[in-house]
């Protein structure tokens, strides 16, 4: 049985309460579910004997610019053994955007989550070191949010005196 067909039944069996929304576009399997379940689901995917998603390749977010479900946090995880990549997605609300951190499972998520926080302002709970990644520490905007203009807000970043 292909790994692709195995994942969803196994997840459904383990988490009967959770609603898993599965899409398969251009061969990429994507599973969307409730944000509160992110840590247990990742834990299951990483430690299950058949799946073994041992590498977290990417964490990012999407800003949909809508009132409800404004952000979607997206995870790409990879199983070296099965040579298979899976995408997980969780919706996050606009006021107080937060989601549990997966750093205890994959250390590599540390910087990805910091980057996502830097760009979107999504707080990752229990993250060991949630600082800005690229922008200066005292910067107050989140550049990849849709309301932020491409050329920035005049005066938000300083230049040295001439």
């Amino acid at each position: 049985m292909e790994i692709k067909d195995k994942i969803v039944p196994l997840l459904q069996e383990q988490f009967p309460e959770t609603n898993f929304e599965v899409t398969d576009f251009r061969g990429d399997l994507k599973i969307k579910f409730d944000a509160s379940q992110i840590y247990p689901v990742c834990n299951f995917l990483k430690n299950h004997d058949d799946l073994k998603f041992n590498m977290c390749e990417d964490v990012t977010a999407i800003d949909w610019a809508t009132k409800k479900n404004r952000f979607t946090v997206v995870y790409h995880i990879y199983s070296l053994e099965n040579k298979f990549r899976l995408r997980l997605a969780c919706d996050v609300q606009e006021n107080h955007p937060h989601i549990a951190s997966v750093v205890p499972l994959w250390k590599s998520a540390n910087w990805y989550e910091r980057e996502t926080y830097d760009m979107y302002g999504i707080k990752f709970e229990n993250h060991p070191d949630l600082r800005r990644m690229y922008m200066p520490e005292e910067y107050e905007y989140y550049p990849l949010r849709k309301e932020y203009p491409l050329m920035g807000i005049p005066g938000d970043l300083t230049l040295p005196k001439k």
Partner: peptide, 14 residues
């Protein structure tokens, strides 16, 4: 690079 983080020419400060 017409973007928020790039200085549009270093003659702004040098």
């Amino acid at each position: 690079y017409r973007s928020y983080s790039v200085v549009q020419g270093i003659d702004h400060f040098l």
